[in-house]
């Protein structure tokens, strides 16, 4: 695998992360082609959050290599951070700043030209106009998600990392967010890596799926191919089969700890 391949948006090569005695990610390798939407599935403690954190450079791998948009994320993350972004309902925007203030600060961090126009455009697209002068701490869960999404789309990222973007949203708002992500990907040609426990969402949005368990990749393919291979009707059934070792997969070996959620969040 060519780690600096410009054709791939993300290349992880033999990625390994150990927290003291707990192996969170166990020699994982994968590539995400540019323009693809890839789902990262796995139960709690599967290593999804740690994998995403390593892709963003928030966590340094114990060994292995990661390339994002052709740049080595361990040595040269500063070269590529302005081309990517991240959204998670579990990471709040500063509560006491208004929506506009938060977007202004992040827009300036990303060095965006014509920032007020960009904020106005995003506010229109994400239905945030009425909320711009309201402190983020006074927004509902759905409104916060839209603001987080606006922050994540502010720099028009080539790579968007999403950690359960529709968690805790009502079905209508969740559907609205998914539609917006579909539009963004189509118009921007962006690459999206989506960690989610919502299987219908993954089936709808993702071209391919990586399934992780106890820090290792146990399978990866398109949703349709996975359904065929496992002989299941839905991706949720595939997920359950893998989670309960009903799929005839070899049990991941050499993993000294599975419960990394308490420490790493998933």
């Amino acid at each position: 695998m060519d780690i600096s391949s410009a054709a791939a948006a993300v290349t992880a090569q033999d990625l390994y992360k150990r927290y003291r005695k707990v192996v969170a990610v166990d020699h994982v390798s994968f590539q995400i082609p540019r323009g693809a939407t890839v789902g990262l599935l796995g139960g709690n403690g599967a290593g999804k959050t740690t994998t995403i954190a390593m892709i963003m450079g928030l966590v340094l791998p114990t060994s292995g290599a990661i390339s994002v948009l052709g740049e080595d994320m361990i040595r040269h993350r500063q070269r590529v951070l302005h081309r990517m972004n991240f959204e998670s309902p579990y990471v709040n925007m500063p509560m006491r700043l208004t929506v506009r203030q938060n977007l202004t600060v992040y827009g300036r961090l990303y060095g965006l030209p014509e920032l007020s126009g960009r904020i106005a455009a995003l506010a229109g697209a994400l239905d945030l106009r009425e909320l711009l002068e309201r402190p983020c701490g006074r927004l509902s869960a759905g409104q916060k998600t839209r603001v987080s999404l606006a922050k994540a789309l502010l720099n028009d990222p080539e790579l968007l990392l999403l950690d359960e973007p529709t968690a805790s949203l009502d079905p209508d708002t969740a559907d609205w967010v998914r539609r917006h992500l579909e539009n963004f990907r189509r118009e921007r040609g962006a690459t999206i890596l989506l960690a989610s426990h919502n299987m219908p969402e993954v089936e709808r949005l993702c071209d391919s799926v990586i399934i992780m368990k106890r820090g290792r990749i146990v399978d990866e393919d398109s949703p349709a191919a996975l359904l065929r291979r496992y002989g299941r009707a839905t991706l949720e059934d595939v997920f359950l089969a893998v989670a309960r070792d009903e799929a005839g997969l070899p049990a991941p070996g050499g993993v000294s700890g599975a419960g990394t959620d308490a420490e790493m969040g998933g």
Binding site: L81, P94, L97, V105, L109, P113, N155
Partner: peptide, 27 residues
Amino acid sequence: MIGATGRGGPAASAGRIGAMILRYWYL
């Protein structure tokens, strides 16, 4: 393409420092 200029250069660097100062001033 929006054209983020998040890389090096003294002007970009000063812009990011200014962004953080603005954040704390808002607070």
